[in-house]
Every structure is written in structure tokens, then in C-alpha cells.
Design a binder for these strands. Sequence first.
DNA 1: CCGCATCCGGGATGATACTG
DNA 2: CAGTATCATCCCGGATGCGG
Lengths: 130, 130
Amino acid sequence: MSVANTDVTLDLEPCGQPDHEDCGLRDVLDRLGERWTVMAIAELARGPRRFRQLERALPGISQRMMTLTVRRLERDGMVSRLVEPTVPPSVTYELTPLGREFAEMVISLVDWSRRHKSQIALARADFDAG
Amino acid sequence: MSVANTDVTLDLEPCGQPDHEDCGLRDVLDRLGERWTVMAIAELARGPRRFRQLERALPGISQRMMTLTVRRLERDGMVSRLVEPTVPPSVTYELTPLGREFAEMVISLVDWSRRHKSQIALARADFDAG
DNA sequence: CCGCATCCGGGATGATACTG
DNA sequence: CAGTATCATCCCGGATGCGG
């Protein structure tokens, strides 16, 4: 099990098959690949947000992608959607308990990335030069 | 800009908004979106790996993507590449200290995803039904 | 064993217009 | 305000072949 020279070990074969990639893991990890999901979660972690509010927090996002992003998170049980039938309509999004768990780790990544982005940029410049 | 499809350089459009400090953030987060990066990091976290070894650990990956994945990680300073000029050649990849920091969080996410994938699958079925 | 190049399809994303 | 619908685009990544 602990074969690594680093102490961080992880058993990637939960299903017993050598095919550990296809245990439904990708379905979850793929969310991270979507352009706006991570930032949306980070924003929602700060509190409930209305549609427009979220949109403004993600500069550059289109209405279409805003809808798709929150919809997919809702589908995964990460976000709850509260509709108030006023005029004009008001829809509020909020992290579920599951979403908050996920958000914790996502935020760790975002914070770490923010702290190291210059170091990484430097490494890239180095690589491209050499 | 770059033409070769094996060119690791992926220059994204610079964020047009001066007040938005998360511009360079995407460059880091985008790694998570790449199909094999997360799993490759998880595997490398268990110890140094040779090219072929890594390839076998990621069922379904093509040689091309294996090369691109490790190259981009190397460019970011996450992975070091050691070439031994034997015949046939032997190339070993290993996480750098920076890469190990990143790996810790990535592994948390992978691990969490594995533990919650059925709950998420259930939420999806619910959503799709109702 | 390791890696680069070319061709190419599909899915994610963007732009735009329209609705309740 | 909070979406939907449609069309256009981009680029990741797969297949395949070659080279050191």
C-alpha cells in the first residue's frame, strides 16, 4: 500500500479492477474541468447568491454558461435552487452540505493556486526559455 | 501562435479586467481540467515513475496525451524529468516539492470523489427523474 | 522505450436573439 | 431578473505513423 517515498498515498483501485479510472470517478472530477465550476463554487461558499449576483462575480461568463454551471451543480446535489415567484423572478442558489464539503477542498486549491501562480509562471518562463 | 500540437504552451487570453486578480489563476486551475493530469499526479504521488509505467497506470491514455500531460506538468515546475541515455532510453518522472504540495490537495479531491461518487450518482438520478 | 507530427471529430464554450 | 434556443467556434484529445 504505502509504496510512496512521499507519505501521501492513495489507493486508486477501489473496484478491484486495474481499470481504476472508470469507477465513476471521472464523472466527479470532470466538474473540475468545466470552465466556471470551480470559481462558482468558491463564490457560493461565501454565501447564498442570486443568479445575477453570481454572474457578476464571474467576469466573462455568458448567461448560457452561468445557467449550465449552476444546473449541473444542482444535478450533482452540490447546490440547491430556491425560486421565489415574484415579479421579476428571484432565484437563489446555495451550497448543500455535500457542496460545502466539496467547496472546502476546492477553496484550498484556489487559495494554493493564488499563492503559487507567480512561482508557476516563473517555472513556465524558465521552461520556455531553456 | 504555436502550431505544433505537441507544443505545451497554452497561452490563454490575458484577462482584460485589471481589477480581477484571478486572471493567472485560471492558468493553474485549467490543469485540473485536463483529462489525465489529476490521475497522473495521483500516480506520481506514490513515487517516481518511468514513462511506460505511468502510461500503464492510466488505462486508456494515448502516448501523445501521456507526453503532453507530463510535459505540461514539467513546464509548471510540478514534475522533474530525468533522462538516462541508455539504450533503449529511460526517462523517469518525479514530483517536485511544488508538485507534492499540489498533489496533496489533488489527492484529497480524488479521495473525496471516490467516497461520494455513489451519493452524487444518486443525486443525478433523482434530478433526472423529477 | 520514449517522443514527435499530422489529420480530424466531438464536446465544451461563446454570441446573439428571444421569452415570461 | 432568470432563463431558452440556435448557430458558430475553438481546442482537447484520439488514431495512426515515423524516428532516435
